[in-house]
Design a protein around this nucleic acid. Structure first.
Length: 490
RNA sequence: CGGGGCGUGGCUCAGCUUGGUAGAGCGCUCGGUUUGGGACCGAGAGGUCGCAAGUUCGAAUCUUGCCGCCCCGACCA
């Protein structure tokens, strides 16, 4: 089984790369650091988008679209923001090519130099706040709750498919509010949306928390995040939500008249999740046989494989399967009846396992005679024979059960790989082994840097549910009021 | 930017040391037998050997230069 897929225990990194490719999720493109998301992978992303988009709408947001290009002068306006992104910007300097006067091909036309360089958006705060200036005059224009789905470019030195690519897809929410409290509440609300999505749809348990100043978004007053733990013991930031204060309003001069008739700067938030979630999904659940998808995000939830000897046999099975397919579809379950004669059942079994289809039904002549069907679940790799009567409800329940089971499995993994540590020796040892390490920290950036330098571990977040307790910093021994979460991260 | 690897049919790779008809497996097309955990037989199609220059009677193979991608590090979501 699982021919050609490296085992996780042998080389986790190779396993991941091969899985992405073999399960038809994505492939490397001809362009360095970029990926082609293939139809099967994109179908998962579309399901993520749909669920998230519904959640955004349900919380009062609307979609819009802002340009790909950011004038350099915009990016410069918020100083910290500019500094944070300067190192990874793709820059457009010209708007025309021409035939090479010295031979074949095309060259940049020096006559077509832009008077101002355009940056390919690494994020859109600046373009959007430049636009908001014209939209916001009164407190009656607020709150402004806008989201956009788009691509962004961050020129990373080292890339990894889905986890860190030069170009990626995401959504970015940008809201404007009349009070600080409202903006803070929005920041928290959207982090909650992300956490619910991660846990209920992706079946990935996440820790909600606050980033340290060092890890904070460039230009934000406060960055909240959800952090997941992958099977190799490394953490993955799955989403962020920023309270931007009045920083961008000030930089772009976005003022509104409040109820008292006074001019005030608007309060801002921004929040985003990206195709990186695909990486989280893969690394959280999948095994040495391939992808394991939560039913709620699986493009194909149920596959039905006929097992037959001749055309009459196939026809008989197809006839019996047709109403089942209809009934499953009527319940909103996506089902594929694979009657492709090109492949044998064994091949199909392996293929759908690799692709993470949650439930497989095998139906052969014996089953037709006995009124049974073989049900195989991807999460446990178990098979059982059950009655064809009531198979639709059986499958519907099973999908719910699988969704719950893989979440529980991931939760158990996280719990078993979260460690409270109180001494430096223990800390170093545990970080080396992997997992979340909950430890006291003196709250200084210097200590944080030092720990990172010595162990490669970063503070993933200060968890919301971290309890107040007297302690000593695991590195400096200084006083600390609560534990924070350390880990090596992607 | 440093270190390593790779570039030969759609895919994975062999061939290069020692220059001389461009190969295998998988996939693809056609025909037949098969079908409860990655079937088999037969016949076929498909390649400017990353690019350029050089050496040579002759270069996938030797020399030089260039380009691209992947992996590991520094940096970062």
């Amino acid at each position: 089984m699982s021919k050609g897929l490296t085992k996780r225990s042998e080389d986790y990194s190779a396993w991941y790369n091969e899985l992405v490719e073999k399960a038809d999720l994505a492939q490397h493109s001809a362009v360095k650091g970029c990926m082609v998301i293939k139809p099967y992978g994109y179908a998962i992303w579309e399901k993520m988008q749909r669920a998230l988009d519904d959640m955004f709408k349900a919380t009062g947001h609307v979609n819009a679209y802002f340009p790909l290009f950011v004038p350099k002068s915009f990016l410069e306006k918020e100083e910290e923001h500019a500094e944070g992104f300067a190192k990874e910007c793709a820059v457009v300097t010209h708007y025309r090519l021409k035939g090479n006067p010295d031979g074949k091909g095309l060259v940049v036309d020096p006559a077509a130099k832009l008077s101002e360089e355009l940056i390919i958006r690494p994020t859109s705060e600046t373009v959007i706040w430049n636009t908001y200036k014209g939209w916001i005059q009164s407190y009656r224009d607020l709150p402004l709750l806008i989201n956009q789905w788009c691509n962004v470019v961050r020129w990373e030195m080292r890339t990894r498919i889905f986890l860190r690519t030069a170009e990626f897809l995401w959504q970015e929410g940008h809201t404007a509010h009349s009070t600080e409290q409202e903006a803070v509440e929005e920041t928290e609300r959207m982090l909650g949306v992300y956490a619910d999505f991660a846990e209920q749809w992706m079946a990935v348990p996440v820790v909600k928390g606050t980033k340290t100043p060092n890890e904070r978004f460039a230009g934000a007053e406060d960055t909240l995040c959800i952090e997941g733990l992958m099977q190799d013991g490394k953490a993955l930031q799955c989403g962020t939500s920023h309270f931007l204060g009045q920083n961008f309003a000030r930089s772009f001069d976005v003022k509104f008249v409040n109820k008292e008739g006074q001019l005030e700067y608007a309060w801002a938030t921004s929040w985003g999740v990206s195709t990186r979630l695909m990486g989280a999904l893969i690394m959280a659940h999948s095994d040495d046989n391939g992808l394991v998808l939560p039913p709620k995000l699986a493009p194909i939830q149920v596959v039905i494989v006929p097992i037959y000897r001749d055309e009459q046999g196939l026809a008989a099975i197809s006839e019996r399967v047709a109403p089942i397919v209809e009934a499953l579809k009527a319940k909103g379950i996506s089902v594929k009846y694979d009657n492709d004669d090109k492949f044998k059942p064994g091949y199909k079994f392996a293929e759908y396992e690799l692709k993470g289809v949650p439930v497989r039904l095998g139906l052969g002549m014996r089953d037709l005679e006995n009124g049974t069907v073989e049900v195989a679940r991807r999460d446990t790799l178990t098979k059982e024979s059950t009655s064809l009567d009531g198979i639709v409800d059986f499958v519907a329940n099973l999908l719910d059960e699988i969704q719950a089971n893989i979440f529980q499995k991931a939760l158990k993994f996280r719990e078993e790989n979260t460690f409270e540590v109180d001494t430096w020796e223990e800390f170093k040892e545990q970080i080396e082994k992997g997992g979340f390490v909950s430890a006291h920290w003196d709250g200084t950036g210097e200590t944080e840097e030092k720990i990172k330098e010595l162990t490669k571990a970063t503070i993933r977040c200060i968890p919301f549910d971290s309890i107040e307790e007297e302690g000593k910093c695991v590195y400096s021994g200084e006083k600390s009021g609560k534990r924070v979460l350390f880990a090596k991260a992607y």
